[in-house]
Design a protein around this nucleic acid. Structure first.
Lengths: 193, 193
DNA sequence: GTTTTTGTTGATTGACGAGTCAATAAACTT
DNA sequence: AAGTTTATTGACTCGTCAATCAACAAAAAC
């Protein structure tokens, strides 16, 4: 049943299926066949479009980071003033699309992938750098010279809250996660110079 | 060359080799043969003593958590008063033995293992609970009702700083990691009630 | 309407790796 | 000295899985 113009649809389906499969399995040790089946095709087709398992993973990772980025940008669009914008960035990091069980678990696994895969590492680094730069930019007028350190601390805290959520048994508690991070922001802004 | 009383020595060697191998590879996808070779024995012997790869991993994880615990206790032993003790706990988390490249990378990978392996998950949970309880105990006299939230935040921040260190290309910067976390403590203690 | 491009899969290959086993040997027991 | 326990490994089995390939089908191009 070959329908023309299938490529982008198939690729998207595979990326989605990869995130779901890795997220559910909680591990990168999933087979191409599993992913392909979930995406409704044969494993041969998955290889046909992506060439290798590695490339499938990288595409999925790119997708996750893109979603993060988009949600942060979305949250940012309505915010005015440094404090509002700072809080919007944090909020964006915990929005619906990103702070979901499989997404979190998949993210953790891609983090591990970045330990071995140079391209995965590059992607993650680019993303982190951009995030830190955004945070620093809003923090500068709020905490001055401390901006760099606070940006790093915030980034690390967000990552930490994420991996802790990956380990929780119930559905991740978005509100509580957000509370922890926002209170960090509160503390830093209380004593601003 | 069978020397009697080899079991504990072999087991220890395997645990050590596992942490090193996983840490270096940055992945759990290492073979029993690799681990065994590094520990100076055949893979058959590794299976003989541990029964399965899974059990080898669990033993390695237990070892890592034990080392953490010991270092925290060590740091705690000389500290007096809640604030000193709180800072000692943090310090213990970043001590020489734990905050090392392979240990960090291995820890991250065991974190991932805990997503799938019930026993690994249990171990990690027990460890986290104890750590949080320790933190809370020292925080209570310092920040009162906020103790629970701060303990959680601190725990998450420490985890976050760890995984970020796993991604760094150079040797992990212990001093900087510590600075980030200690400043979090500073902020929380500044406005104590 | 034939050729080319795009889509698709079942079957196969080839490698790798966990776990088992039989065999060998040194040390301890009686 | 014979028997038992502990240590140790090379060789093998068996399953799994990424990747390839040959073949078929439909649409597009010519």
């Amino acid at each position: 049943m070959p329908k023309v113009g299938a490529e982008p649809i198939r690729r998207a389906a595979l990326v989605k299926a990869t995130i779901e499969t890795v997220g559910e399995a909680g591990s990168l040790e999933v087979t191409v066949a599993q992913i392909a089946r979930r995406a409704g095709m044969s494993s041969a087709l998955a290889h046909h479009y992506f060439g290798s398992k590695e490339r499938i993973f990288l595409a999925a990772m790119r997708s996750i980071l893109t979603i993060y980025g988009a949600e942060v940008r979305g949250a940012l669009s309505t915010a005015a003033g440094p404090e509002q914008r700072l809080r919007a960035i944090v909020l964006g990091n915990f929005s619906q699309g990103s702070f979901r069980r499989e997404a979190i678990s998949a993210w953790l696994n891609f983090y591990v992938l970045a330990q071995t895969q140079p391209e995965a590492r590059r992607l993650l680094r680019v993303y982190q750098r951009r995030m830190r730069s955004n945070l620093r930019h809003e923090l500068r007028p709020l905490v001055g010279a401390r901006a760099e350190a606070v940006a790093r601390g915030l980034g690390a805290l967000i990552d930490g809250v994420y991996i802790r959520a990956a380990l929780a048994e119930n559905a991740p508690d978005r509100a509580y996660a957000l509370k922890i991070v926002m209170e960090y922001v509160d503390r830093e802004l209380e004593n601003r110079t």
